[in-house]
Amino acid sequence: MKSLRLFLLPAAGLLLAACDTTPRERQEMVKQEARRLDTVADRAAAKLRVAGRRAARFDSVSRARTRQPLDKAAETAFTNELLGTYADIEQLTPQTIEPAFVQFMQQVRAQRKQWTQRDWDYATVISRRLNARFRAIRLDIKGRDELHIRALQTEFTALETGRDVKDLGQAVKQPD
């Protein structure tokens, strides 16, 4: 029985032997430890409430941004910048779709660090258009090229999601 009491006391943060204290003293130590744990839990809950409000605000701002239509001229410029000679997405063939994806991802990798969330919105629209064209001609694309395209699609999604997570993390950390 003594070993059980010695085991329980360190959990309360004290290194006293059970035989060196009275039950009333142990009861008081447990109450103090419970108050300390309540305080820690209350602080953690407050931090979570604040982080939740900030995350909700970020989500609200993000939704409002995505509801705003993209400027067609800016989208065309962005398409030309990211795709170069492959900018006419609807004219891509089974032979040119893979190089278009490669060009797109090279530009995304090169420019992504200075992009705003709105820039990512434009890149996402371009990616969706490329993906739609890919689906339209997929049955005529060589297996090797299709595999490479799928890897590039996955990379784009990972980069975009990483940016969203980074921005959300920064929004949660920012003071009100």
Rank of each mutant, 00 (worst) to 15 (best):
F78D: 04
L8G: 02
R53D: 10
L139Q: 13
P10L: 02
T96C: 01
T96D: 03
T22V: 11
V102M: 06
F78T: 13
Q68G: 03
Q95W: 05
G13A: 01
K113P: 00
R54E: 06
I137N: 01
D38Q: 08
Q107V: 13
V165P: 03
A17Q: 10
D59L: 07
A41D: 00
P175K: 04
R133W: 02
R5W: 11
T93I: 10
G162E: 13
R54D: 05
D38M: 11
D20N: 14
A41T: 02
R36A: 10
I141D: 03
A73G: 12
T22P: 14
Q170R: 15
K166I: 00
R5N: 10
Q174W: 01
D42L: 12
E25F: 04
P175D: 10
R118Y: 10
F7R: 15
P10D: 00
R118P: 00
V61R: 10
V40F: 04
I126D: 00
F104L: 01
A56T: 12
I137Y: 03
T93H: 07
R144F: 12
G143H: 09
I89F: 04
W120D: 07
E28R: 14
S60Y: 10
I149A: 02
A56E: 15
A34L: 15
L70H: 05
K47I: 04
D121V: 06
P69S: 00
E90K: 06
V61Y: 01
R49N: 09
P69K: 00
Y122K: 04
G13P: 09
D38K: 07
L168W: 03
T161K: 11
R5L: 11
A77R: 15
Q27C: 08
D59K: 11
D42T: 06
E75V: 00
R36H: 08
A44W: 08
R135L: 09
T116D: 10
R5Y: 10
T79I: 02
K72H: 08
E81N: 10
F78V: 01
A171M: 03
G162R: 07
L168Y: 05
A158F: 01
D59G: 04
T85N: 11
